[in-house]
């Protein structure tokens, strides 16, 4: 068999497996979200209803739309700020020699390995004394700090692969480091930058513990906590609501991912990378 053929078969099988693997549980989620009874594979029958979707949007006490809005604002701010902060740090570490380069990089990484539960008490006190409890900054600031190592390391791995010749030449022409960073490195690093933004956005979107402890109601609470609030007094789990809410909540993320794909894959930049 020719190489092209093997490749084609592998690709087809791989793609099929990938889609089934990733989507089956999600399809099941959607099935539960439009089913009147979550146990339709057991004793109940499958009755299609859109009640769950209607309910979560219209029942005021669930505050679904408030939580969604909060999540979007918080995550977008975090993703953008964090990506910029991380990119500038990654640029410095990959291009400039300075004392503490390695300790700082490793230190930032090491700090991110602490379990969140051990940090939450301190953050609560801090936010309380700053009067920020139940506001967006109470979530945005810790989220940036908590996701910046991920962004930093993704971008470090990416930027360190961009050849130095380009920026060296610009600097020789008298451009400042800031200008080189903005005009040359950032555009070339776009694929890395966008995958970092995407992953950070999702991380912030999904964070639970900080959001639970640092907010007290729907004026700043985010989706995961909002969904956790659906649960009833004795642990009744309104599966339909939960699944409908998560399906709706994942829409912005999927859209974002689709939009960003264009930037993640940039054939033009390939020539600029060292081999």
């Amino acid at each position: 068999m020719s190489e092209a053929r093997v490749r084609k078969i592998l690709l087809a099988v791989g793609t099929a497996f990938m889609i089934v693997f990733c989507l089956t549980p999600f399809m099941w989620m959607i099935a539960v979200s439009v089913s009147k009874y979550p146990d339709f594979l057991g004793s109940q029958s499958f009755v299609v209803t859109f009640r769950n979707y209607l309910d979560i949007i219209t029942i005021g006490s669930l505050h679904f739309l408030d939580h969604l809005r909060n999540s979007l604002i918080v995550s977008a701010t975090v993703a953008l700020a964090c990506a910029l902060i991380a990119a500038s740090a990654a640029y410095a570490v990959s291009r400039l020699r300075f004392r503490g380069r390695m300790p700082i990089s490793l230190g930032v990484l090491a700090l991110s390995t602490f379990p969140q539960i051990s940090l939450v008490g301190y953050l609560y006190k801090l936010m309380r004394s700053l009067g920020l409890i139940n506001t967006y900054p109470a979530l945005i600031l810790p989220y940036i700090a908590w996701t910046v190592p991920l962004g930093f390391w993704i971008l470090l791995s990416y930027i360190s692969r961009i050849p130095h010749d380009l920026d060296d030449a610009a600097i020789a022409d008298g451009a400042s480091r800031g200008l080189v960073f903005r005009k040359i490195v950032l555009p070339i690093a776009a694929p890395g930058l966008f995958s970092a933004i995407l992953l950070i956005f999702i991380a912030a979107f999904n964070e639970f513990l900080f959001a639970l402890m640092l907010t007290t109601d729907h004026s700043a609470r985010t989706i995961p906590v909002g969904i956790a609030l659906f649960q009833g007094l004795h642990g009744e789990i309104p599966w339909g609501y939960i699944m409908a809410a998560s399906t709706l909540a994942s829409l912005p993320l999927v859209t974002l991912a689709m939009v960003f794909q264009r930037y993640v894959i940039q054939d033009i930049t390939r020539g600029a990378l060292k081999g």
Binding site: M18, V32, P224, I237, Q261
Partner: peptide, 30 residues
């Protein structure tokens, strides 16, 4: 592009929800 976006779905679903989804998938009776 579509496929790239769809494979992100598992990562995009909040852990607290995906854990619940698996709880339902592994449920003994249904």
């Amino acid at each position: 592009n579509l496929i790239r976006a769809t494979i992100l779905v598992p990562w995009a679903v909040p852990t607290i929800v995906s854990a619940r989804t698996w709880e339902l998938i592994y449920n003994y009776s249904y």
